[in-house]
Write a protein that binds this DNA or RNA. Structure first.
Length: 800
DNA sequence: AACTCTACGGTTTTT
DNA sequence: CCGTAGAGTT
């Protein structure tokens, strides 16, 4: 035993050791970036087990399922077994609710609605209430309601002042009623209902308190009001609550997370032991210095200084380039250079603020045959055909699910159009049942439906009935059968949509994998009780997984992170938000520009925030700074920042301004390279303009075709061996933009001050030029009609 | 009922 | 720029 304990403490610094050895009572671990937090948490779990705590008495909450899986593995390596309940808040709550649903008066086969489904419900509610959806969009209302729910506010808890607030309350109320009718829970409900369960049902609460004698929560700085209350409820009896987090890495306030939860932990649990982990083991001194320099500018912050014994390392780099294509090119050349020095693709990650920025990187990587994985974007389970298939399964399990019914009743085409669907919806309301259930009563159908639609609906209902008779396990068999019987597979085959067909194949694979992982016998070996009776039958919760509901639950709660593959040697592309908790030797942060990083907030909050609009602004911009900080501190060896001079946004080039975060980095901490040069500075240029390149200070003209050679030459001088990639690519992109119109544009390359003539406006002079190629615009001041912006590709302007 | 065309608006970030 | 909601067409 003592050797095991020694192992567990081996290589830990004093505070880490203290955290691992503090087994009882409330514990707050303030863990700076890269301070070995995961190590501490896993060792602490192992230590608990070594001290006689039974694995199933430990509940550990992580941010993603993937993180949970990794932690489970590490614990198993340390103590040879697990059985620790490791999952996300959402998965945890979903499982508890599956088991305890009867207590709350809803079905165990409830459906989990994703954002898309929730939005659809909101839409029907808006329609029903006759609200003008121009004034309050479904999206805005959904966000608002989600905000209430994550603070555990019921509709009747809201303080109503304005008209808008009244509407929101009404929609919230109706929305919840609709979810209940559908036997559906949205993401927020998973937390909220679990909270209600524990709050209002003493017996249940006690049962789970006894079961989970130790509670650990990772990334506590990103918990919302509901999660916070859940932790409190579960932990209040034994007070064996350990939370870890870093206020500087709180980046989810926009979805209800409240950093105050971690700041006030000591107050909620008196006698908390606080451990600070401030030695960083991840990054070079240079990386750390840069990150610290920036985060220091946050006012709302507890002072903290991370330090490291790691080497100074190479200086972080700032690369300034012309536009987003060149930005991607710059990253790719650097990647090729790194690979040339023997580094692996998997050592490298590219982070950006918005998913929309990923495209140029993908294109560049593909062109250079560099393997990569894109995390996020439209995940697998949100593809249309996959959602259709899942909707069938959902309807099989839960006949009350009208959202799924409406989604698939006419997919594939069965000749059941909008009018029939509307009629069914009305009938469902009249008969107080679900849409699918209206099909059980044939009288109204005989009377009110055309024969064609009626027969289709009979066939549809019968098909579902047959499927419902099928064994629910293995899930894969049912999935296959469903794909056949529904006609989904045939219709995809016929239409030749290979991509979608592949996705469906992948769905079958997912079901096969699910079956393999949840095989009843194997399942018992994984977690459940060595001692019967120790759990009050809580093992059933785990068993419940081996079902269609379990499969659907996995699908619904799958995070993009979970799909990430560690094993493959590929470059990783993802948003800054998804980067939390990860590390890579080389990190690129793209688009370090005002308006992007930090992101500007456009719309004002819908209501309630008038008096605190400015506070809100400050809070938001500090969160952006934390986001930058999270990104920067992922880098182990070297950090690359990128900014462009002009960026294509909504199909228009916009001049970019350096991010304020760049101003906050002392000059000696960053090595700046300007590949764009003065000629690229204005952003107001046009095919044919004279430009100067920083590639050897050469001059040239932006001209597709002819310009290729000139540009290649420039590039060759600065990047031997990588002939012509940089500016040639620019030229290629310019050509793309100009396309066939080029010959016309080339003749009409205007400069400020040119006199021009327009067919209807007459003569005028060019005052400004913006954009490139087909999106190029000029502002012309006409003698008789004043100033006007004209699209060059449309307006036929002639020089005079 | 299903297909085609156009106008519009969208970009934060995600469980 | 791109996708899609809604209108208009067959």
């Amino acid at each position: 035993m003592s050797t095991v304990v020694t192992d567990i403490l081996q290589g830990l610094n004093p505070p880490q050791r203290e955290a691992v050895e503090t087994l009882d009572g409330p514990l707050l671990i303030l863990a700076g970036a890269g301070s070995g937090k995961t190590r501490v948490v896993t060792r602490r779990i192992a230590n608990l087990i070594n001290h006689g705590v039974r694995p199933w008495e430990i509940l550990a909450i992580t941010f993603t399922n993937k993180a949970a899986g990794e932690m489970r593995q590490r614990v198993e390596t340390l103590v040879g077994q697990s059985g620790v309940w490791l999952s996300t808040f959402h998965s945890f709550c979903a499982r508890i609710l599956r088991r305890e649903a009867p207590v709350l008066g809803f079905s165990q086969t409830f459906t989990i609605y994703d954002e898309d489904d929730a939005q659809k419900v909101i839409k029907t509610v808006i329609e029903k209430l006759g609200i003008d959806d121009k004034r309050m969009s479904p999206g805005a209302l959904r966000t608002l309601i989600s905000g209430f729910k994550s603070k555990a506010l019921a509709p009747e808890d809201l303080e109503i002042g304005t008209f808008h607030e009244r509407i929101a309350q009404q929609v919230y109320q109706e929305y919840q009623a609709a979810l209940t009718r559908n036997q559906a829970l949205d993401f927020d409900d998973l937390l909220l209902k679990a909270l209600v369960l524990f709050r209002d049902h003493t017996e249940v609460r006690e049962r789970y308190r006894q079961r989970f004698r130790h509670v650990l929560v990772d990334e506590y700085q990103d918990t919302n009001g509901c999660q916070y209350q859940l932790v409190k409820l579960l932990g209040e009896g034994h007070r064996n609550v350990c939370v870890t987090g870093d206020p500087d890495q709180s980046i989810y306030s926009w979805r209800g997370a409240d950093v105050r939860n971690i700041l006030s932990f000591e107050r909620d649990f008196p006698d908390t032991k606080v451990v600070r982990l401030e030695q960083n083991y991840r990054s070079t001194q240079n990386v750390l210095a840069l990150a610290s320099a920036v985060i220091k500018h946050n006012k709302e912050r507890k002072a903290k200084e991370l330090w490291t014994e790691n080497p100074a390392g190479e200086p972080p780099a700032l690369r300034i380039v012309g536009d987003q294509d060149l930005e991607a090119y710059e990253v790719v050349s650097e990647i090729e250079r790194l690979i040339g020095t023997g580094r692996r693709y998997s050592d490298i990650a590219v982070f950006y603020r918005t998913n929309a920025q990923s495209r140029p990187f993908e294109q560049s990587l593909i062109r250079s045959a560099i393997p990569y994985q894109l995390i996020g974007g439209t995940p697998f389970y949100e593809r249309r055909e996959v959602k259709d298939a899942l909707a069938y399964l959902r309807l099989l399990v839960n006949p009350k699910d009208d959202v799924s019914f409406a989604r698939i009743v006419n997919v594939p085409r069965r000749g059941i159009g909008e009018s029939s669907t509307d009629l069914i919806a009305r009938k469902a309301t009249d008969m107080s049942c679900s849409m699918l259930e209206t099909l059980d009563r044939t009288e109204w159908m005989e009377k009110e439906l055309a024969q064609k639609a009626r027969n289709s609906l009979y066939a549809f209902a019968r098909m579902l009935d047959v499927l419902r008779q099928q064994p629910r396990y293995p899930v894969a068999d049912l999935v296959k059968r469903m794909l056949n019987d529904s006609g989904l597979l045939d219709s995809l085959r016929e239409s030749g949509e290979d991509e979608r067909l592949k996705n469906i194949e992948q769905l079958i694979n997912a079901a096969v994998t699910y079956d393999a992982e949840n095989e009843p016998g194997k399942l018992m070996a994984q977690g459940p009780p060595p001692e019967p009776g120790a759990f009050d039958g809580l093992d059933e919760i785990v068993q419940m997984q081996a079902s269609v509901s379990g499969f659907l639950e996995n699908a619904a709660l799958m995070t993009p992170q979970d799909a990430r593959k560690n094993s493959e040697d590929v470059v990783t592309l993802m948003t800054l938000h998804m980067a939390k908790g990860l590390e890579f030797p080389f990190v690129f942060i793209a688009g370090v520009e005002e308006g992007l990083l930090p992101m500007v907030r456009v719309g004002s909050s819908v209501f309630g925030a008038e008096q605190s609009a400015q506070d809100e602004q400050v809070r938001a911009s500090e969160e952006e700074r934390r986001l930058f900080y999270v990104g920067a501190t992922r880098a182990k060896e070297r950090l690359f920042l990128l900014m462009v001079r002009r960026r294509l946004r909504f199909g228009k080039y916009e001049v970019s301004i350096p991010s304020r975060f760049l101003d906050e980095i002392p000059e000696n901490l960053i090595e700046e390279t300007d590949r764009a040069g003065a000629g690229w500075d204005s952003g107001n240029f046009q095919l044919g303009n004279r430009v100067r390149s920083s590639f050897g200070g050469n001059r040239g003209r932006i001209r597709p075709g002819a310009a290729f050679e000139e540009l290649d030459e420039f590039d060759a001088t600065s990047a031997p061996g990588k002939k012509g990639r940089g500016l040639a690519q620019y030229a290629a992109s310019a050509q793309e933009h100009s396309n066939d119109e080029f010959s016309q544009l080339n003749d009409t390359a205007f400069e400020i001050g040119d006199r021009v003539k327009h067919a209807s406006f007459g003569e005028g002079s060019v005052e400004a030029i913006q954009g490139l190629g087909l999106s190029a615009k000029v502002q012309v001041h006409f003698r008789e009609h004043g100033p006007k912006w004209l699209m060059l590709s449309i307006a036929k302007l002639r020089k005079v």
